[in-house]
Write a protein that binds this DNA or RNA. Structure first.
Lengths: 203, 203
DNA sequence: CTTGATTATGAACGGCGTTCAATATACGTT
DNA sequence: AACGTATATTGAACGCCGTTCATAATCAAG
């Protein structure tokens, strides 16, 4: 019950987040408890509260890392000839990430802060960074510099994709196979982009 | 601590679900606990377990009722000239429901059964009933009888709509105003349907 | 009236997030 | 080297949670 020189605060932060990640990947979101994380890093639950505000805070940090991982996986697949091709690559990366880390993805999207609370700014920035990849893929469709419309469309696609994966993941769409999730996502992208092309061309 | 003739099992079921609904609408999803529901209907927690398998079961029944309410709100707005007009009415009804019962909507979509568990058949049927409204609106776009493709498209739209509402509701899309949710939903529907028209016409 | 089936009870269990007084250690000062 | 202070860690404690089950009270049938 005393001060130990074992780890600096940064090391504790690092160890806690890595333990949290391992717990989630191994046993899912419901196993992510303060006591489990504390056990895994060899400290008592109270110590976590010197590093994180509370468990919500820890989860937000974990999700921030997951967003970074997702971004790093999607970013290299940037250069492509057409928006359709670029979006296809991004979609592959996204579904590949979902398949590789289903439980991390689950925490990232299914966990919500208590109603009314906003995520911190640095978290919002990480979300925007991923959305930026989508915007880059879509931007050729829009008149130069119309970043508002591009961001709008990117958000719609992002949200739509999320909806498909989320509802199928929770068994609420009677969609079982991975294949049908991919087919739905491709159907969404294909028709939405066609719609953008047509409707933007008309105006 | 004994048998009471106050209520039949059906009445208990009814009272519990109504109490659960009121608790959720008033104080949100996190206030929906077995003890709160039991208090509200004047019984002890243990009694709930004579009526429901567990709290998950109670929530699934509550969500079933929410699906019924949503269906009854959307069903009267069926007849419309074009798919676009029909979808516009359905979208109005959906967003109106979301605005009127945000916490019920929240439980309906954000609550997930433990991973791997499937919802019961009667629940799946209720989901299909709502999806049927979307299919009816979309069906003029498809060659007669291609109910597979219609159902596919309805599911994509349903999921996409859900993604927009869900991400904005949890503050994960930097979308704040109700207006922008509506704009995104309309953008999704408009461009997706245009895409369907164009791509189906080509084939 | 007696008996037996049924139903509500609420204490109990283990677990949860979180707090905080107590304490053992490290460090700056003398 | 010795001391005193600041600080990191503890773990018991609080009030919740979902869930279980022996107990007891009531009803219905004989």
């Amino acid at each position: 019950m005393a001060r130990r020189a074992d780890h600096s605060r940064e090391e504790l932060y690092e160890n806690a987040l890595q333990a949290a990640r391992q717990i989630v990947e191994a046993d899912g979101y419901r196993a992510l408890t303060a006591r489990n994380v504390a056990d895994a890093i060899g400290y008592s639950p109270g110590t976590l509260y010197n590093v994180f505000e509370n468990l919500d805070d820890l989860i937000v940090h974990l999700n921030g890392r997951t967003l970074d991982t997702l971004h790093d996986r999607l970013a290299p697949q940037q250069q492509a000839e057409t928006p359709e091709a670029a979006l296809g690559k991004l979609l592959d990366g996204y579904l590949g990430f979902l398949e590789a880390h289903p439980n991390l993805w689950n925490v990232l999207f299914e966990y919500s802060l208590p109603r009314g609370q906003q995520p911190p700014d640095w978290y919002t920035r990480k979300v925007n960074k991923v959305l930026g990849l989508l915007e880059a893929a879509l931007s050729p469709l829009f008149p130069d510099g119309d970043s508002d419309a591009t961001g709008h469309a990117a958000r719609i696609l992002w949200a739509g994709l999320h909806g498909i994966c989320s509802l199928s993941d929770s068994g609420k769409l009677q969609v079982v196979t991975t294949q049908s999730v991919r087919a739905m996502a491709e159907g969404l992208v294909a028709n939405y982009v066609t719609g953008l092309r047509v409707n933007l061309g008309r105006q």
